[in-house]
Each structure stands twice: as structure tokens, then as C-alpha cells.
Design a protein around this nucleic acid. Structure first.
Lengths: 257, 257
DNA sequence: TCCAGATGGTTCATTATATGAACCATCATT
DNA sequence: AATGATGGTTCATATAATGAACCATCTGGA
């Protein structure tokens, strides 16, 4: 692995639950030598990507990340723009809704609205979803370039549950179906007991940049529920795309009076 | 420079004004070979710290940064907590107000509220302030550990304007004064024509973690104005520290009923 | 139409950089 | 005082980064 890859892995060890970690612990979890870990942390600290707590000498994520994130969000406000739409969709369906963006060869969860129900599907922001096995992935594949789909399906597809479709033919068929009706359906392809329906979020060029998904306990979904969710998720995904790509209404609204 | 330092420098080339940059341009600005630049970008992209725009093949900051920033902000909500206080202070003084955090050996601007007046001081988020020459820096030094101050003053102090105090004695005197009255004053030590007053933001251990500053055109400040700003900036800095470190009132408010 | 000068991306021998075992100092517990 | 953590450092060794030269494309002229 490249040195910067190792440094990035260090950053990824921090989480909401564990925002500060000591040197030895970091080295252990990243499978790196303590000296190496330290040098990486020092390099990261120089650029404010991590910082060290004065008292405990533990490390935490740095202020530079907030700055970089602000720059990104200002110019590609995917999660921010989408939040109200996610909330509406979660309220309308009563189920957990999550938004993901294509990044680093897979779908990256950038926004989540959990269902209000006790029995619900839990998804964490930052979670990485494979392109096969998830409704979001299939929806993305259905609206990306054929070259990309071909290249992806040429690889060996991992089975995440006994229900994961791993045969190229079957997955390709799912993709075709999703392209036709505008949304994808997947039952237990990635997590047991979870039923998902997803629609692509399209970029300005008409290709998918991410996906929006409704995830429900399998027991709560039948054909009519699925059809309703499909329609709702499609509308919501279009709404997000419209706001993101600056459709007329939004532009008009933001025009200075 | 370390490899991860180079990678971090690449990230820092992106800005609000220029959120997407091509490979050649990045290599040129970072003073790196194109091949090197590419390898770094690929490594960063694997961890979603950058991503490539589909159409132009230009690079931009990645979604992983937003995720990491969320983790940081959730557990160290410096800028977020401070925003309303900054706004109040800017409104009360009529001048530009900025908040900085100590990170990477200097003060890092994490929040700005610009004055409403036409003739105002402009400060950018992300700007790096030296510990000498700025009111914020002196305020920080006045409330950090004596060891740190000694080590810092042992270095050669750069002059940013003809008015920058660079003599150890003079700077140490400023620090002493700031420690006594609780805020620091600096005129044109970093930018010509700018008058600044700053107070430290203290962490739980009583040492400074950052500084809050009011910056005004020199022409608009006299002794009585400065005294008023000093009091106001001290109160505001205490308010931020209190909210940050969870003073009783805040804790009581957030207690589940 | 063709050329000139951009661009993004790749290769591979050379070289500089990252690595890690062993080390020290400090702290809290026993 | 001994134990086993912790954070941090050193330096010979080995691995990973480097960059000149390369190719393929694209764009805007002439």
C-alpha cells in the first residue's frame, strides 16, 4: 500500500464513537509500526489533517478537514441539498432512506434518514456499498456508461449473503430491468432480512452520480408497497438531481431580487 | 517533504474559487512531476479524499472529506458552536470578527463574520495566522504553557510589515500585558492599516486552544473604541469556551427531560 | 486538412524515502 | 521496586517514490 494510502487509513480509524485515539492503538489497528504511524501522524498534523489533544496526547481529526469539507460542500452540495428530500421520503415511506455517491469504485453513503419505527433498517453514514448486491448499486449501474458496467461485471462478484446474485447474467438482467423501469429492487442481496429499492441520482450529463434508496425490513414489503416505494424514490431522486444540477426553478429562486 | 505532505499539499490547492483542477495544473502548482501527482491523486481517490469529474477528468475534493469533517465537528464543534457568538460580536462591534484554532504550529482561521461596513477588514476562512504579529497570536501565547512560549520566541520572528514586532523582548512584553488584562492589541503587525484586538478561547485545562479577534480599519479605532472592543471580545471568547467545554447551563439545557 | 500545443495518462531504471527492531522516558498499577 | 502499559526516537536496511521520456487524445487555428 502507498504511504498516502496508509495515512488515509489512519484518518479512517476515527469515528463518531471514538474521536480520539492514542499512538499505540492507532498503530495496532492500522497494522503499522509505531514509528511509521508516528511519522505519518506528524506529516498529517503539519497540514492540520490531524491534531493532538494537549492533555492525553491522543490524536484526533484536524481542523483542516473541516476547511476542505467546506470547500467541497460549497461546490458539490450533494448531501446538503438532499437532506430535506431524504427527510420527506423517510416520512412518506416510514422507512429508512439513504443516499450514496459514487466514489472510489463503489457507492459511498453520504446521507441517512432513519425510519421512525422501532423495527427499522440501520445504515451508517460513510458506509460503503458494493455495486452488485445492493439496490443502490444496481440503480447506479443501470444509469452509468456501458463500458463501466462491462468492466465491473468482468470481475468476480462477491456473495455477501446466500441471496446475493453473483452470476454476471443475473446481475446484467437486474441492471436491464432497472434501466427500463427507472428503479431497482433487491431483497437480502447485502444484508439478511433487508429489502431495498433504489433510484439513480443523475448528473448533468445524464449518467448516475449516486443513488437514493429506501430500505425496509423484508416482512413489511409486498408488491404494492414496493411499487409505491419505487415511484416515491424515483421522484425524490429526480428532485435531488434537479436541485443539484440547477434546474430552472431553483435558479429562479436564488436570483437576487 | 514527505509523500503524505505532498498529497496534503495537493488537497490544499483546491479552493472555493477553484474547486476543480486538472492533472497538469495540479502538478505545476504543487511543483511535482505529473506522474508523481497522478499517483498521489490515485491514492487519495482510493480513500475518497479526491474524486475525478467524469466529463472533464478534472479532480476535485472527495466525499470522504465531508465524512471525516462530520466526525470531527460532532466531537469538537468549535466553529459550529462559535458561529452565533461571532455574529453577535460582529453586530455589536460593527467590525469583522474571526475565530482561529491552534493547529500545526500556528493559528488556523476556522470562522469569520465580516463587518457590514463597506470599509472593512477581510479575512478568509482557512487563513493561517502567525503567533507573533497578530493580536490573536499574542492572545494565544499569553494563555498557553510557558515552555511553548519560550520555544516559540527562541526562533527567528519574521517581519510581515514594517510595524511587526520581532524582538523577543518586545513580543514577550506584549504577551505579559495580554496575560494581565485578558486581551491583546496589535496594530498593523500583520497587515498594514489593520487594528486587531483578540482574546484567547480556553480549553478545559485552562490553556488557550484558539483565539477570537475583532479586526478594524486602523482609522476607526481610538482608545475608547479599543477598550470597548477588548471587553466585548473577552466576553465573547469566554462564552465560546463555556459552550465548548460544557458549562453548567449548557449541560442542563441538553439534559434529557 | 493538417499541424502545434495543449491535455490526461503510463513506463521503468534510478534514487530517495519509508520502514521497523530496539531503544528511552514516563506513567499508573500492583 | 517491579511490571506493563504508554508516547516517542534512532539508524542501518529495504522498499517505495521518483521523473524523463513516452503515448493517446483533444482543441483551436491556419
Amino acid at each position: 500500500m502507498s504511504t498516502v494510502g496508509k495515512a488515509a487509513s489512519l484518518l479512517e480509524l476515527f469515528s463518531m464513537a471514538e474521536p480520539e485515539i492514542g499512538l499505540s492503538e492507532l498503530a495496532r489497528r492500522a497494522n503499522l509500526n509505531k514509528a511509521t504511524t508516528r511519522r505519518l501522524l506528524v506529516a498529517l498534523a503539519e497540514h492540520r489533517l490531524v491534531e493532538q489533544a494537549a492533555g492525553t496526547r491522543h490524536y484526533r481529526l484536524g481542523a483542516g478537514l473541516s476547511r476542505l469539507a467546506r470547500i467541497r460542500d460549497a461546490n458539490f452540495p450533494f448531501a446538503r441539498i438532499a437532506t430535506p428530500v431524504l427527510q420527506d421520503l423517510a416520512a412518506a415511506t416510514g422507512e429508512t432512506v439513504h443516499l450514496s455517491e459514487f466514489s472510489g469504485g463503489a457507492l459511498f453513503t453520504v446521507g441517512v434518514e432513519l425510519s421512525a419505527q422501532a423495527n427499522r433498517v440501520n445504515v451508517d453514514a460513510g458506509q460503503i456499498l458494493p455495486l452488485h448486491g445492493t439496490a443502490s448499486g444496481i440503480a447506479f449501474l443501470a444509469f452509468t456508461t456501458p463500458d463501466f458496467v462491462a468492466a465491473y461485471l468482468a470481475k468476480r462478484l462477491e456473495a455477501f449473503t446466500p441471496h446475493t446474485l453473483t452470476a454476471r447474467e443475473k446481475v446484467a438482467e437486474q441492471v436491464r430491468l432497472a434501466a427500463e423501469r427507472g428503479y431497482s429492487v433487491s431483497a437480502q442481496g447485502y444484508s439478511e432480512g433487508v429489502h431495498s429499492i433504489a433510484a439513480p441520482v443523475l448528473g448533468p450529463d445524464g449518467h448516475a452520480v449516486g443513488a437514493l434508496s429506501v430500505a425496509a425490513p423484508l416482512s413489511r414489503v409486498d408488491d404494492t408497497v414496493a411499487a409505491a416505494q419505487g415511484e416515491a424514490v424515483m421522484r425524490a431522486a429526480c428532485e435531488i438531481a434537479a436541485r443539484l444540477n440547477g434546474e430552472p426553478l431553483t435558479r429562479a429562486r436564488s436570483r437576487p431580487s
